[in-house]
Computed example of a mutant assay.
Amino acid sequence: MCEANVYMEQNGREDLLLASVDVIEPQADGSLRMVNIFGEQKVVRAAIKCMCLVDHRIVLAP
């Protein structure tokens, strides 16, 4: 499987935003749209801080 869990880093901790994400698309307004393998979607204003695809982990920062 190629999906990853996406976390938001805030106040020194990482909170899970969406599990099993297989699509991340930048939007015109600067936000990121994420879609997981179950069709769930989230849009957040954030930047990618770190991607570790071997660990299936993406960390965002507001």
Rank of each mutant, 00 (worst) to 15 (best):
1 M>T: 06
1 M>P: 08
1 M>D: 05
1 M>V: 05
1 M>W: 01
1 M>G: 10
2 C>S: 15
2 C>D: 14
2 C>M: 12
3 E>L: 08
3 E>V: 09
4 A>G: 04
5 N>K: 07
5 N>Y: 05
5 N>P: 06
5 N>G: 08
6 V>C: 03
6 V>I: 05
6 V>W: 02
7 Y>R: 03
7 Y>Q: 04
7 Y>P: 05
8 M>I: 04
8 M>H: 07
8 M>A: 02
8 M>L: 12
8 M>P: 02
8 M>S: 01
9 E>W: 08
9 E>V: 05
10 Q>D: 13
10 Q>L: 11
10 Q>W: 10
10 Q>R: 15
11 N>Y: 12
12 G>V: 06
12 G>I: 06
13 R>Y: 10
13 R>C: 08
13 R>E: 15
13 R>D: 12
14 E>I: 05
14 E>L: 04
14 E>R: 11
16 L>T: 03
16 L>E: 03
16 L>I: 03
17 L>E: 12
18 L>F: 00
18 L>Q: 02
20 S>L: 13
20 S>D: 15
20 S>A: 14
21 V>D: 08
21 V>W: 04
21 V>G: 07
22 D>N: 15
23 V>D: 10
23 V>M: 13
23 V>S: 11
23 V>F: 11
23 V>I: 14
24 I>H: 01
24 I>R: 00
25 E>W: 05
25 E>Y: 07
25 E>P: 00
25 E>D: 11
26 P>S: 09
27 Q>L: 11
27 Q>P: 03
27 Q>M: 14
28 A>M: 10
28 A>S: 13
28 A>V: 14
29 D>S: 07
29 D>V: 07
30 G>M: 03
30 G>L: 02
30 G>H: 00
31 S>Y: 00
31 S>I: 04
32 L>Y: 05
32 L>G: 02
32 L>W: 06
32 L>H: 05
34 M>H: 04
34 M>R: 01
35 V>F: 06
35 V>T: 15
36 N>K: 02
36 N>W: 02
37 I>M: 14
37 I>A: 10
37 I>D: 09
38 F>Q: 13
38 F>L: 13
38 F>N: 13
39 G>C: 03
39 G>E: 04
40 E>G: 07
40 E>A: 11
40 E>H: 12
40 E>D: 15
40 E>N: 14
41 Q>A: 14
41 Q>H: 09
41 Q>N: 11
41 Q>R: 15
41 Q>D: 10
42 K>N: 07
42 K>F: 05
43 V>K: 13
44 V>N: 02
44 V>G: 00
45 R>Q: 14
45 R>K: 15
46 A>Q: 01
46 A>F: 00
46 A>V: 01
46 A>E: 02
46 A>H: 01
47 A>T: 14
48 I>D: 02
50 C>D: 15
50 C>R: 14
51 M>I: 15
52 C>L: 10
53 L>P: 11
53 L>S: 09
53 L>R: 07
53 L>F: 14
53 L>Q: 10
54 V>N: 11
54 V>W: 10
54 V>P: 09
55 D>G: 08
56 H>T: 06
56 H>I: 08
57 R>N: 08
57 R>D: 07
57 R>F: 06
57 R>E: 08
57 R>T: 08
57 R>V: 05
58 I>D: 00
58 I>V: 09
58 I>M: 00
58 I>Q: 00
59 V>Q: 06
59 V>F: 01
59 V>G: 06
59 V>C: 03
60 L>I: 00
60 L>R: 01
60 L>P: 03
60 L>E: 01
61 A>K: 12
62 P>L: 10
62 P>N: 11
